[in-house]
């Protein structure tokens, strides 16, 4: 059993008279400790795929299977729980909570699940140290550089110790030196913590850190290497 499977997924949008096929019979697999990349032109359906895997939107047909469980069988309440426990989303930099300091950004994830234990505190500090942020624990997002913010977002995605890590263009707002660092960090953490990760990227230079590369074109996903 693979950690993550996508089976024959199709997603269409009705736009008045015409329908847009954002995803066309997409299938893929990612195992624990693997990081795969998805590249492709803008508007080809990469974000749509990631959203569907992350249970943020419902595909028109097909399944997402995490740890052998089909997520389309989950109810609304269970979906929130699924996102909390099984998915780590690395969002864009602007998506930190502006009034929480770096440490609290991570602890928020635990708060959502209930109480924050001292073990959680330790884990959060450990993660932030891994990402070179041990000196920034009390800083607010507006006091951090773009690269630092993105590293916080990465740490947050790992905080709930989920099975799957999803990253949508995590390097979009960074210069290439920072971008390399960030992708390398993601890759390291994925290997170390045995996650199944999908990273969408524009930047072909980042692919060296990935185990496999898929290409998305007009909603059709093909394995490239």
């Amino acid at each position: 059993m693979k950690r993550l499977e996508v089976r024959n997924m199709t997603k269409t949008y009705d736009e008045g008279s015409s329908t847009i096929t954002a995803l066309n019979n997409v299938s893929m697999e990612v195992d624990a400790g693997e990081i795969v990349a998805i590249i492709g032109p803008s508007g080809s359906g990469k974000s749509t795929l990631l959203s569907a895997v992350g249970a943020l939107l419902q595909p028109s047909s097909g399944s997402v299977i995490v740890n052998g469980k089909k997520i389309e069988t989950l109810k609304e309440k269970e979906l929130a729980k699924f996102r909390l426990n099984e998915i780590g989303f690395i969002l864009q930099t602007s998506n930190l909570i502006p009034y929480l300091n770096v440490l609290d950004q991570l602890l928020l994830v635990k708060k959502m699940a209930g109480k924050v234990s001292s073990a959680d505190q330790q884990f959060a500090k450990q993660l932030l140290a891994d990402l070179g942020l041990e000196k920034k624990l009390k800083k607010f997002p507006n006091e951090l550089s773009g690269g630092e913010r993105q590293r916080v977002a990465i740490a947050r995605a790992f905080m709930n110790d989920s099975s799957v890590i999803l990253a949508d263009e995590p390097t979009a707002s960074l210069d290439s030196k920072r971008a390399f660092e960030v992708v390398q960090l993601i890759s390291n953490e994925v290997k170390k913590r045995k996650k199944a990760a999908i990273m969408v990227t524009h930047d072909e230079r980042m692919l060296t850190y990935c185990d496999r590369v898929y290409r998305m074109e007009d909603g059709v996903l093909t394995l490239q290497s």
Binding site: A80, K81, N85, L91, I97, L108, V109, M112, A113, A157
Partner: peptide
């Protein structure tokens, strides 16, 4: 939206 995406319930 961010909070919901990372798993916050309503």
């Amino acid at each position: 939206g961010v909070m919901k995406a990372i798993g916050a319930k309503n």
